[in-house]
Amino acid sequence: RELEAFAERFKQRRIKLGVTQADVGSALANLKIPGVGSLSQSTICRFESLTLSHNNMIALKPILQAWLEEAEGAQREKMNKP
C-alpha cells in the first residue's frame, strides 16, 4: 500500500514540477548516490504505473524520494529568490 501511495504521490509531484520521466532518469546520476547512475524513462514509467517487480520498487523508492526532495528544494529556492 505504501509503495502504491508513494508512486502516485511521486508522479503528481513530478508533473507539478514540470519534469519529464526522462529528465528524472538522467537527473538521478547527479545525486551521486553510490551504485546509482541514470535510469531509463521506461523504468520511471514502470515505477509510476506499478509494473516493476516489488523488489525493484522497494529498491527505487529511496532513490526517487531523494531526487524528489532535492528537486522540490531547488524549486523552493528558485521561488524565494527576488
Rank of each mutant, 00 (worst) to 15 (best):
R1V: 08
E2K: 08
E2P: 02
L3F: 07
L3N: 04
E4C: 06
E4F: 09
E4L: 06
A5R: 12
A5Y: 05
A5N: 15
A5I: 15
A7V: 12
A7P: 02
A7L: 01
A7C: 11
R9E: 11
R9W: 06
F10Y: 02
K11Q: 07
K11R: 13
Q12E: 13
Q12I: 06
Q12H: 07
Q12S: 09
R13N: 06
R13A: 10
R14D: 00
R14Q: 00
I15W: 04
I15F: 03
I15V: 11
I15E: 13
I15A: 07
L17K: 02
L17Y: 03
G18R: 04
G18C: 02
V19A: 13
V19P: 01
V19Y: 10
V19K: 12
V19D: 04
Q21R: 09
Q21V: 08
A22S: 09
A22H: 13
D23R: 05
D23G: 08
D23F: 05
V24H: 01
G25W: 12
G25T: 11
G25E: 14
S26E: 15
S26P: 05
A27T: 08
A27R: 08
L28S: 01
A29C: 15
A29R: 15
A29Y: 15
N30I: 14
N30P: 14
L31C: 09
K32S: 15
I33C: 12
I33K: 05
I33F: 08
P34M: 06
P34W: 03
P34H: 06
G35L: 04
G35M: 05
G35T: 15
G35D: 06
G37V: 07
G37F: 06
G37I: 07
G37M: 06
G37A: 09
S38G: 05
S38M: 15
S38L: 07
L39T: 06
S40C: 11
Q41N: 06
S42E: 12
S42H: 06
T43D: 08
T43E: 05
C45R: 14
C45W: 08
R46F: 05
R46P: 02
R46N: 14
F47E: 01
E48H: 00
E48Q: 00
E48C: 00
S49P: 00
S49C: 08
S49L: 05
S49W: 02
T51I: 05
T51N: 10
L52H: 04
H54I: 15
H54C: 08
N55L: 11
N56W: 09
N56S: 14
N56K: 13
M57Y: 04
M57F: 04
M57I: 06
I58P: 01
I58Q: 10
A59Q: 14
A59H: 15
A59Y: 08
A59P: 03
L60F: 03
K61P: 00
K61F: 03
K61Y: 12
P62S: 04
P62A: 03
I63K: 06
I63D: 03
I63W: 08
Q65F: 07
Q65T: 09
A66Q: 09
W67T: 01
L68I: 14
L68Y: 04
L68S: 02
L68W: 01
E69R: 07
E69F: 05
E70T: 10
E70K: 12
E70W: 04
E70Q: 11
A71K: 15
A71S: 08
A71P: 02
A71I: 05
E72M: 03
E72C: 03
G73S: 10
G73P: 04
Q75H: 14
R76Y: 07
E77S: 10
K78W: 12
K78N: 10
M79P: 13
M79E: 14
M79A: 12
N80D: 12
N80K: 12
K81R: 15
P82R: 06
P82E: 12
P82F: 07
